[in-house]
Each structure stands twice: as C-alpha cells, then as structure tokens.
Amino acid sequence: MNIRSIAKESGLSVATVSRVLNNESGVSDEARQKALKVIERSGYKPRNYSQRRGTRIAIVVEAGAPSFDSFYSLVFTGISRYAWECGFEATLVYYSPDHERNSGGELVDLLRKKRCNGAVLIAPISESEGQNLIDARIPSVLVAHRLSLDGIGYIDCNNFQGASDLTEYLLHLGHRKIGYLCGNLENGNNSDRLNGYLKAMESVGVEVDDGWMIEHHPTDVTEQAGYDQALFLLERYPDITAIFANNDSMAYGAVTACMETGLRVPEDISVVGYDDYLSSRYYNPSLTTMRQPLMEMGASAARWVDEKLKNKISDLPHRVFRGELIVRKSCALPRADS
C-alpha cells in the first residue's frame, strides 16, 4: 500500500494524508482519524519514515521581553524537559504583534514559516490572533495569560488572590505602611497583583497613599527596575516598613536598594517578591514570595499541545491554580519606631 492507496481508501486527498503522516496542522480531527485508521490497519510505513519531520512546538515569546529572565527560564525548562522525554522538538519563536500587524503578517504565517505544528504562548495575543490559530488548526496554549476562546488553551495562576494572600501575610505581621513596586500594568497579571494588594489593604481599613505605588520603570535587567523603584520609594517615604515587589527579580533589586540606604532586611524593612524563582531560596536573606509552579505549567502546556496533535484530547484545557505562600527570612515585625 502507498500514500495514494491510503488516500483512496480513506476518501481523503493525497495532500491531507501526507499532512497526517508528517503530523502537520491544518487537518480536521475527523480526517486525521480516517487516515490513521487506514494507516494502522494496513501497517503502512513510508520510506525514510524515521527521518521524517515529527512534532515541532513553538515557544512563542513577545519580542523585546526579557526572554531569559527566571520567569521565562522556568517555563522553558518545563517545556523542553517534556519535549525531550517525548521525542519532539521545541523551538523558540519571537513575535512582535505590532510589527506583524503593521507589516500585514500574522502569527499563523510565522509559525508556518518555522514549520511548527503547535504552540505554547508565553506572550499575550489578541482574540483575532487566537481565532486565526484555531482556524489554521494549530493547537495553542497560553502560559500565564488567558484568552476566552474555546479553541485556545491556557494555564495560569490566580494573581489577584496570590497578591492578596501575600499582602495579608505582611498585614498579619503588623505592617501597615507597605510600598508596592509595580510591573508593567498593561500585562493583565501584573494589574491583578496590584489590585490584590489594594484589596487586602482595604480589607483592614488601611488607606493607601498613591505615592506608595511606584510605577514600572522598565530596564534591560529586571533587578535594576526593582532597585530604581525601591530607591524612589524610600527617598520619598522613609517610614515605609515593607516592600511588595511585583516579582522576585525586582525584589532582589529592592533588597540591594534598602541595604544601600542603611536599612537592614528584615530587621528594619521587610521585602517580598512573587513567582518563587529557584534562586530565591538561596538569596540573602532568603526571599518570602508567592510560588507559581512555572516549570510544571510549561510542561503541562506542552503536554496538552502534544496530546491534541495526537488526538488524545478533544479540547485544550483552561486551568487556573492558586499560588502557594512561601515564608522565608526576608520579613519580620515592623521596626519599633514605625
């Protein structure tokens, strides 16, 4: 039996059967199942089958993002480990939504140029971009972003609840003057974290001074952003007793800023981060933070795409976890003069 015989018996075109044999996107589930049944029944294996291109999943990152920041590296690790264990290729793809729109290109075109069957998206996409992926039959899962489309999967943590829990921990210690170092608030998760902080402060009757919330100052090194924002905060509000940094990297920079201004952490000021990077346990002082299972999230996203390509699942999941408060040594009771 050859590819033409399979096409005739299954009632499909030769091109469709070829896509199925090469595990390519652009084939309906029904058509794929028809072809696979005939292939399995006949025991057909094309020549050089082992050398044919298998699954290639894109790891899509927004161009200009700090792609090898600890956040990304943990997600990458989860994806690449799963890919290695399951014998498929994962390739990094940079995507600039504004550039693609201005040039008339689309994410789908970029993935096809890279010969990718599916995608794990560590970058926000629009609803129209998501619909294009669905129409092109490219299974795609968002990590740490969400899109309300049935054909696009996502895996995320509840950032609002996580930030609220972390702020409540500081309030429980007795802190009331808590500064907040913002991330880019155009990112919905960063906005959720700020709102979680505000909600927790409001719940105990603390009136937050607008000056306690320091807007994001992007830098090439995320630690530098935390350092700059913390210095700005401490210069204007020296009576602050705790700092909530939007992520662990910014918290590292904030700790350095505190020490350079003569404040001991945690004796004079407490500092918390978010995400629980691998280095946070070994930082001095070890960092109190909110853990997101980033490595596991990356692996799950890759697995869902892989299983969708293999028709092991019919729908890509939508899953949201609650973060885990990790208490370490960067926090203490407010200093006596506060």
Rank of each mutant, 00 (worst) to 15 (best):
I3P: 06
R4C: 09
K8C: 05
L21M: 14
L21Q: 10
E24G: 01
S25I: 03
D29M: 13
A35W: 01
K37I: 09
R41A: 14
Y44G: 05
P46Y: 06
P46T: 12
V60D: 03
V61T: 07
E62W: 11
A65I: 02
D69M: 07
S70D: 06
S70R: 01
S73T: 15
R81W: 09
E89N: 13
V93W: 00
P97Q: 12
S103V: 12
G118A: 07
V120P: 01
Q131T: 15
D135V: 10
L142M: 11
A144I: 03
R146G: 01
L147S: 02
G151M: 02
G151T: 02
I155F: 02
I155T: 04
D156P: 00
N158G: 06
Q161N: 13
A163I: 03
L166G: 00
E168V: 03
R176M: 05
G183W: 04
N190C: 12
K199I: 02
G205M: 09
E223F: 05
E223C: 11
Q224S: 09
A225E: 06
G226V: 06
T241P: 00
N247F: 05
S249W: 00
A254N: 04
T256S: 14
T261F: 08
L263K: 11
T288R: 02
Q292P: 09
M297F: 09
K310Y: 11
N311P: 06
L325G: 07
I326F: 15
R328C: 11
S330I: 10
R335F: 12
D337K: 14
